[in-house]
Design a binder for these strands. Structure first.
Lengths: 207, 207
DNA sequence: ATATATATACCCCATTATGGGGTAAATCAT
DNA sequence: ATGATTTACCCCATAATGGGGTATATATAT
């Protein structure tokens, strides 16, 4: 592994300095920039063009989640690894959606951080195991759904923007049958519209 | 880490036996069952109640992907780790959606497989780094979208099943403006319906 | 065996949403 | 300053929706 040019954006001085120290000491990677917030970093980013940015989420000024798209606009090919104490589904998914390539918790040992830097450079997606688990769970359905298999199938087609007619044709059933299923779905989810049914079903991972 | 009761479903004798041998030799986990296909395994699963199942995808009879929900129905709390030579987005996401807790490529060293068994028992989500990268990319949008920001926003609301009227209200614009955006979205995606627009936009990760 | 859930299908009705067409002005960004 | 974006209005016919009632066959579970 060649020397990787790394930049750190982290407001806590102790954490920032110890990461920098350990990375420089235990690997061949170079810490080419250290910043206490995104606004400071922004001025230098284009000139610096780091390979990897270690980014904290809890920052003064623009937070890490919102900083990701801004960084990606300036440096589309720079990999961003989130370093955070928080492991909530919401934050993790937003970070990944916004363009982060990895997500580590701050209690990760320095070896894990160093190998994560190498991993992203090689096209990997380094994550703490609890983070990986949350990411996987984000794909999985809730098996305590009140909806039947057929109802789930219909609501999924519905959520794909299809009309009753089209769903009926594709499922080889009558449009009236689709309608009856829909009526039962509305009753079970206690809603009275498509949008509400989709929203409830998605948030509860029924579909 | 206590001894974990592991079961292997893998049709290739050499791979199956070498996994079993290495796991028994290098860890305290117990291989309590080995099967060449899902049908064979199914007979014993409830009685065996393994903690973890190492599951191949390319199986004779029912394939691994389809076997996952069947296993989960019999053993809802057993963790399933996929072992596959294939790393296509489609297979990986289907496996995770169906309930797999981890996904390793077959070239993984035995240490990685052993630690994966421990990781799932502790609530983690073990993945090969290339798999993790694909999973992360599944969350990320295509930034070469022909759609404008506003159009993406509107199509996302559209994909949430909302009507033009509701979108207009929530976005503080006129329904006619929503309509114009929609018309431009249809033109850019070369479609003539909601369902097609959503389908194209989702498959190309524009939304 | 009997109750409950599921999947199928038909009828009525009024209201709402959709897609296609044309046009245009203000603002934003390269 | 040229093209893209965002906003908004007009016309029109057709399709889709949601609410109501009813029914029958099959599965599943207690």
């Amino acid at each position: 592994m060649n020397s990787v040019r790394v930049c750190i954006i982290e407001d806590d001085e102790l954490i920032r300095d110890s990461y920098a120290f350990l990375i420089e000491k235990k690997s061949t990677h170079k810490i080419i920039g250290m910043y206490v917030d995104y606004e400071e970093a922004e001025k230098d980013l284009y000139e610096l063009h780091p390979d990897v940015i270690l980014l904290d989420i809890e920052l003064p000024g623009k937070n890490g989640i919102d900083a990701i798209p801004s960084i990606k606009k300036i440096l589309p090919d720079t990999f961003i690894i989130i370093l955070s104490v928080f492991e909530t589904e919401d934050l993790i998914l937003k970070a990944l959606r916004n363009g982060a390539s990895g997500y580590l918790t701050k209690n990760s040992p320095s070896e894990k951080i160093i190998s994560a830097i190498e991993e992203v450079m090689e096209g990997g997606g380094p994550m703490s195991s609890s983070v990986a688990s949350l990411v996987i769970k984000a794909f999985q359905k809730n098996n305590n759904s009140p909806l039947s298999k057929r109802e789930i199938e219909i609501l999924e087609n519905f959520a794909a923007g299809k009309s009753r007619k089209r769903i009926a044709e594709e499922m080889f059933i009558d449009t009236e049958t689709v309608k009856t299923h829909l009526r039962n779905i509305y009753f079970k989810l206690d809603v009275h519209s498509k949008a509400d049914a989709i929203q409830i079903a998605r948030s509860k991972k029924f579909i």
